[in-house]
Design a protein around this nucleic acid. Structure first.
Lengths: 193, 193
DNA sequence: TGGTTTGAGTAGACCGGTCAGTCTAGTGGA
DNA sequence: TCCACTAGACTGACCGGTCTACTCAAACCA
């Protein structure tokens, strides 16, 4: 076994939480799928909630890698870099079978019931939006988007609409809503508001 | 008691499913909150899944009432009517404490796990989108939106982005994302794509 | 009209199964 | 020797769902 037990559990958690959500994922099922005894699980994680939180941390590591790759691609214009991030996310969704975004899924399921998750997930969105906003700020300076546009608002708007498209894409198991959303919002963003 | 037991259960189901989602809502909790014995519940509903489906039906009745009230308001332009529907929805969300949309919540939680729910909820979205599309078609004929715009695609896009804004609004318990989304998408829709 | 029947609806004890989490014993490499 | 880690039996609580007993008002009929 190349990876450690902890790694194996977190890795499986990424796909199982994406598919099943939080409440429908049983610890037993996770353990069976990864051939892990219960003792190991509770050696590394203090509770199911702690586990899910660490899975979210891991998810965010991947998200930031995607942000690094896209927003740092100087071959593209700033606005193109922002769009590239969403396109990279779409490719990730494709590899997962168009199950949408884990943050959106857990956010919907848990934000009415668990304030810890709600604020953690909102913090994730805010983090992502912040990095996109910095990129859009540069796009504004370069004249790619109107001078009166607010990069932070626009970044939040793009991210929120993206999450909605991801939900519809999850329901349909189809990427079309994602592309439609990108075409519409990015072409609108270049014009005066 | 003015309403019937069945009514009372469905009514409570609307708010409890919105807040807790499906898996976190126990039958026992529902019964306790409504002072209903278990026998009555299983007299009216064959299972928890059947119950949730009927709650969705009831939710859709309210949605269609909202669509009737807004899309049928001839004092507004066709595009204004479509926007009015979302504004009415926002008022409903406010009354519920900004917990977002039940379809979005259940869709995210269950579509990875239960195909029956997934297709039912997708059908709901498709229904709503269809009615908005008819309205946008008239907006197109009246020249409110560009002639080359596709009303069905635009309606789906508005609905999807709305759902994303509703998720963010749920996380923040704040209506701002909803209004931002409406301002952006409706002003963009009036310009050529 | 008055007595009987019937069944929709109420009531909650109870069922097997599964849940997250605990506990003790053992293992193997440093 | 020591301790991080593996291993899984076990716990009590709770899950959705079943079952039987009961209530009571409407339907029925002499």
């Amino acid at each position: 076994m190349a990876t450690t037990t902890r790694e194996r559990l977190l890795e499986a958690g990424l796909s199982l939480l994406l598919q099943h959500g939080y409440h429908d994922l049983g610890i037993q099922a996770l353990l069976k799928q990864t051939n892990t005894p219960k003792g190991s699980f509770y050696h590394y994680f203090s509770s199911k909630e702690d586990f899910a939180m660490q899975v979210i941390d891991r998810y965010m590591v991947e998200v930031h890698l995607g942000l690094d790759a896209s927003l740092g691609d100087l071959a593209l214009t700033p606005l193109g870099r922002a769009r590239r991030f969403f396109e990279l996310s779409r490719e990730k969704y494709r590899r997962d079978g168009y199950m949408g975004c884990m943050l959106g899924g857990l956010g919907q399921e848990l934000s009415g019931v668990n304030a810890t998750f709600a604020s953690r997930i909102e913090a994730c969105f805010s983090e992502i939006s912040g990095r996109i906003a910095d990129c859009l700020e540069e796009a504004r300076r370069r004249g790619e988007i109107p001078g009166e546009a607010d990069p932070r608002e626009l970044a939040n708007l793009l991210l929120n609409c993206w999450e909605g498209a991801a939900l519809r894409s999850r329901l349909l198991r189809d990427p079309a809503p994602l592309d439609r959303m990108l075409d519409f919002t990015f072409s609108a963003a270049t014009r005066a508001s």
